[in-house]
Design a protein around this nucleic acid. Structure first.
Lengths: 116, 116
DNA sequence: TGGTATAGTATCCTAAACGATACCATGAAG
DNA sequence: CTTCATGGTATCGTTTAGGATACTATACCA
């Protein structure tokens, strides 16, 4: 456990990467509190197993709060923690870069096909 | 190819993730131009295969420039492109969040062991 | 008595990422 | 004519991520 910049970047990226974590976070950011089944409805192709697993990891890192209501059938609600909300600017920065990267790649394509 | 925020975030994250890409980028940011062997020296545990593969991907995405000199033994130099440098603020944001996240987790640990 | 809803686990399988190791081409230096 | 350095490929095996599917507990409702 050294304290290099690349180690810190990797620590942060661990939280954001995985096939589903960005989508889960964005759904929670835009919808606030959601129960498990609602979350699943917003992510049409995720399996129950993956949704559970990713939520557990986010919970372990204090990003997501899990509230269980003792009812039958069960009700479990997920939301961002205050701490989790500190990720929003980071996601925004990544989103902004990704947005213009798509444009950058399109222009590169155009140049490549024009020069043929 | 839809244009959702989560798709853009994932596009950007594809470039940053992988076991070695953050380290490679940070080495190139701090050292400027490096030849293959120097890059490898800075990343003690990477295999030649992985270094080559990751550099090729970064090159494809226009992040890294590869300059071949026709000499024997071969000389190949890698550096960030101008475009690649636009990633630096993003990496900085991720790094800053990762830095305080390490602290956050330590404090959580402390609280957990104190309450036992 | 049996079906329904919710939020999961458990088990097995595939595909992709990653790693270890061996090999290759070139020309200069000895 | 052999050796060395560089910047790679090729091949194989392992490990991890992710997916498909089946199963579970609980209480209510018909």
């Amino acid at each position: 456990m050294e304290e290099t910049p690349s180690c810190r970047v990797e620590t942060a990226l661990e939280i954001l990467t995985g096939k589903w974590k960005p989508s889960i976070l964005l759904v929670l950011i835009t919808h606030g509190t959601l129960r498990f089944s609602e979350l699943k409805r917003q992510l049409p192709n995720i399996t129950q197993k993956m949704l559970t697993a990713q939520l557990r990891e986010l919970e372990l890192n204090d990003i997501v709060h899990r509230e269980i209501y003792q009812e039958v059938p069960p009700r479990v609600e997920y939301s961002l923690t205050d701490y989790g909300r500190t990720l929003i600017p980071v996601l925004d920065a990544i989103n902004a870069w990704g947005e213009q990267h798509v444009i950058h790649l399109e222009q590169k394509e155009k140049l490549a096909s024009a020069s043929q």
